[in-house]
């Protein structure tokens, strides 16, 4: 079997983002970038399935500018076999990304597509589900346990109420939660080997899909700062305020 794993380059999760003064977005110059954290879980799970012998090939794909290739190299360094870089110098929203991924799926014909559950930059949580719908495949989102069977997968999903188990037929789309696994570290020799693995190049706008953004970002601003409230004199006053004024107890 074959897995396509999609990885995205985002501002590193430790970096405190800074909103631009003109409201056009956030500063990204000289800011440390990394692979979107749950995408690392997607890669790790693919590699585990390959190690179990059931999967023969892992193809890692990213969409973005030239530097986005770093994320594919990282996936190659921990066990993906080859990479695809779909070049685009501009932001594409999840709908467009899903359309591009559909093209890649049609070309690569994988049995499964693994993605992170959500990107930590735009926080959309859409791409995997959209891709599944476009392919008319089943999906398992927020996956925290994956069991691969012959023609299906049994997947435990993290939902608000607790855990849900579903079985999806292959081919299928899986979006991965941070609790799915602990991504491994790349070793130095594997990073070097990864430099020699092939990365196919494609250009987003040449793929024949409509990737025009439909949602226009009017402005980005810092969240309003919370103001200090009042100090209460004692516990009795606190309880009375909570009960009668804030009405939360």
């Amino acid at each position: 079997m074959k897995i396509l794993v999609a990885v995205k380059r985002v501002i590193d999760y430790n970096v405190q983002i800074r909103v631009k003064e003109d409201g056009s977005g956030v500063h990204t110059d000289n800011v440390k970038m990394s692979t979107n954290p749950p995408d690392d879980n997607a890669t790790e799970e693919s590699v585990k399935l390959k190690e179990s012998g059931k999967v023969k090939e892992i193809v890692a794909v990213t969409i973005g500018d030239d530097k986005a290739q770093e994320t594919v190299r990282k996936a190659l360094a921990v066990g993906a076999d080859r990479g695809i870089h779909v070049k685009s110098d501009t932001y594409i929203e999840p709908l467009g990304i899903a359309k591009i991924l559909k093209k890649v799926v049609e070309k690569e014909k994988p049995d499964m597509v693994f993605l992170g559950k959500q990107a930590i930059d735009d926080d959309c949580n859409q791409t995997g589900q959209m891709l599944a719908a476009m392919l008319n495949w089943p999906q398992a989102t927020f996956s925290s346990k994956v069991t691969l069977k012959d023609k299906s997968m049994e997947i435990v999903r993290e939902i608000d109420e607790g855990l849900e188990t579903v079985e999806v037929n292959l081919p299928a789309v899986v979006t991965c939660d941070l609790r799915l696994n602990e991504p491994r570290y790349a070793s130095l020799p594997n990073i070097m080997k990864a430099k020699k693995k092939p990365i196919d190049q494609m250009v987003a706008k040449d793929l024949g899909v409509d990737i025009t953004n439909r949602v226009q970002q009017l402005k980005v601003e810092e969240p309003p700062k919370r103001k200090a409230g009042i100090k209460v004199a004692n516990v009795a006053e606190l309880v009375s305020k909570l009960k009668n004024e804030a009405k939360v107890i």
Binding site: N181, E182, P183, R184, Y185, A186, S187, L188, P189
Partner: peptide, 23 residues
């Protein structure tokens, strides 16, 4: 030598453990 990666507080190997290597 590079550092072993993926050790816990007590020095036990965690899931993602990766042994350091000699250069």
């Amino acid at each position: 030598a590079t550092l072993d990666m993926g050790l816990d507080k007590e020095g036990n190997k965690k899931d993602g453990y990766q042994e350091g290597m000699e250069l």
